[in-house]
Amino acid sequence: MKATFQVPSITCNHCVDKIEKFVGEIEGVSFIDVSVEKKSVVVEFDAPATQDLIKEALLDAGQEVV
């Protein structure tokens, strides 16, 4: 499964690193693409990962998800 999250609070590479760390810890996540320019995060994943778990990880990383 693939999901795109709009994350307007992404401003720098530190944000990218933190997002990759938090989302990458979720079992089932196979790909993460964070774009500072587009302020988006694209995640490819399989169970047990879910969109809700990914959104929670983004929030835990200090990001706003819309």
Rank of each mutant, 00 (worst) to 15 (best):
G24N: 07
Q51P: 12
V43G: 00
D17W: 14
K38H: 13
D17H: 11
V23A: 03
K38D: 09
Q63A: 08
F5M: 00
A49S: 02
G28I: 02
E56R: 15
K2Q: 07
A3S: 08
A61V: 04
I10R: 00
E27A: 10
P8V: 11
D46G: 10
Q6S: 12
K18A: 09
M1E: 06
L53H: 06
D33K: 12
A47F: 14
T11I: 11
E25L: 14
A49C: 05
A57I: 04
F22G: 04
E25D: 11
A49G: 02
N13Y: 12
T50M: 03
S35R: 06
V43W: 03
F45Y: 14
L53C: 05
D46K: 14
G28Y: 02
T50R: 04
V43R: 01
I19M: 03
T50P: 02
V7I: 09
K18D: 06
G24C: 09
I10F: 06
V7S: 01
V34S: 02
F5I: 01
V29G: 00
S35C: 07
F31A: 10
F5H: 00
A3K: 06
S40A: 08
G62H: 05
L58K: 00
V36N: 03
K55R: 14
A49D: 01
I54R: 01
S35T: 04
N13C: 15
M1G: 07
D46M: 13
K2G: 04
A3D: 05
V34G: 02
K39L: 07
L58M: 06
K21Y: 09
V23K: 03
T11S: 10
V23L: 12
V29S: 00
K21H: 08
S35W: 06
S30K: 14
P48I: 02
K21M: 08
V36A: 05
K55Q: 08
L53K: 13
V42G: 04
V36P: 05
I26T: 02
D17L: 13
V66Y: 10
E25T: 09
V16F: 05
D17M: 13
K21V: 06
A47W: 14
S30Y: 12
V29F: 03
V16D: 03
S30N: 08
F45I: 01
E44F: 15
C15E: 11
K39G: 09
T11D: 08
G24V: 05
L53V: 07
F31Y: 12
G24F: 09
D17R: 14
A3C: 12
S35K: 05
K55C: 09
E20K: 15
